[in-house]
Design a protein around this nucleic acid. Structure first.
Lengths: 194, 194
DNA sequence: GCAGAAGTTGCACAGTACGCAAGGAATTCA
DNA sequence: TGAATTCCTTGCGTACTGTGCAACTTCTGC
């Protein structure tokens, strides 16, 4: 096996901590949850909690799924219209996110009221945006345009999740479709008629 | 006088705390600065520090200048091409920022290494983006397109400041021009040829 | 099965953030 | 101008955060 018992247990514990954190946070707000409570709920010591996460906000947010290498490669080397390739890329990324909808829901609740948690997530998204910028730089010569496209794309992720959380009976995929359409419409509004 | 002595002193103290914080942070990194040091450098007690700011990161970031009401009004009711009106809006906002270039410089240094500070700033930018979205909603019927445009715009602010900090001998205004051009180019890339 | 690596835990300690109450300075109003 | 009021500052006490260290347990590779 490629993953040792140790590694598996580590992942397991990390996830248990995240779940305990989110569970408590949804109940009474992350501000009012102490690391001690989280540790107790997880069945570990406070000290061990800090061996996994540097703070409770990080524990709540967890590690978002990375972009798939295949999807990035497709984006770099794609030949179709850029808008279509980006949408395809987003669809693939959302397929990964959809696996943990309940967790996503809880994270959303935490993010809405917790500044520090937003900061953590922001850090992750910034890394993702940098990754995307690098991919796009291979197709777009103007580096500022590549950065702008990466921003349009990661922002669409955020807005789609937000919409999904606030609109009843809307699937994550459907929310993305709506948001992406708005993104394209906005781009058209900025583009002088040729 | 419209502003009482109390109010003026309060503003003064708030600024002094920010300057002391940034000064120490640039010297040795905000992580390695204690609230006690900041208070001492400002000439106040630790307790008073917390009457002004909830934490040192907030003290470092301070309160960014708000959008001017006139600029917002112009954006809401403007009739020119949207891209031009937005650029005008940004130019006005940057004129306000330019007053405190040295502070902006120091804030940038802090943001680069401090996660929590980025979170604080993110909160401010999110509010600004919401404000902008509201303005734009009066000119653009599709709410997702309005949100996307607001994002394009606030992101341009961030990228312009970043570029200005990293490129030697580039004025803030010139950086904005370059970034905005990239934004427009990216929009064109997403727009199918009509 | 055993040596070493990795993980867990208790303990100690520096730092953060805030409630509370006493005292001091600014503002209001008589 | 002087008293009443309001706001600000400060010290003290306290709950919580985050990390270094050392002892101990568990897992891994040979």
């Amino acid at each position: 096996m490629t993953v040792s018992l140790r590694e598996r247990r580590r992942q397991q514990t990390a996830r248990e901590i995240q779940l305990a954190t989110l569970d408590l946070a949804v109940q009474k707000g992350l501000e009012n949850v102490t690391t001690e409570e989280i540790a107790a709920a997880t069945g570990i010591s406070t000290r061990t909690f800090f061996n996994y996460y540097t703070n409770k906000e990080t524990a709540a947010v967890g590690a978002p799924p990375p972009f798939s290498e295949a999807a990035k490669e497709a984006l770099r080397c794609g030949s179709g219209p850029l808008a279509d390739d980006l949408k395809l890329f987003l669809d693939q990324h959302f397929a990964a996110l959809t696996n943990d909808e309940p967790i996503l829901q809880m994270i959303g609740t935490v993010l809405r009221s917790n500044e520090k948690a937003r900061g953590i997530l922001q850090g992750f998204l910034m890394m993702e945006r940098r990754e995307l910028t690098d991919c796009l730089s291979q197709r777009v010569k103007n580096p500022q345009a590549a950065a702008a496209l990466a921003n349009y794309t990661t922002d669409a992720v955020g807005r789609a999740i937000f919409l999904w959380e606030h609109a009843e009976g809307l699937s994550l995929g459907a929310a993305l479709d709506i948001v992406w359409e708005g993104t394209i419409a906005a781009a058209a509004l900025l583009t002088p008629p040729s």
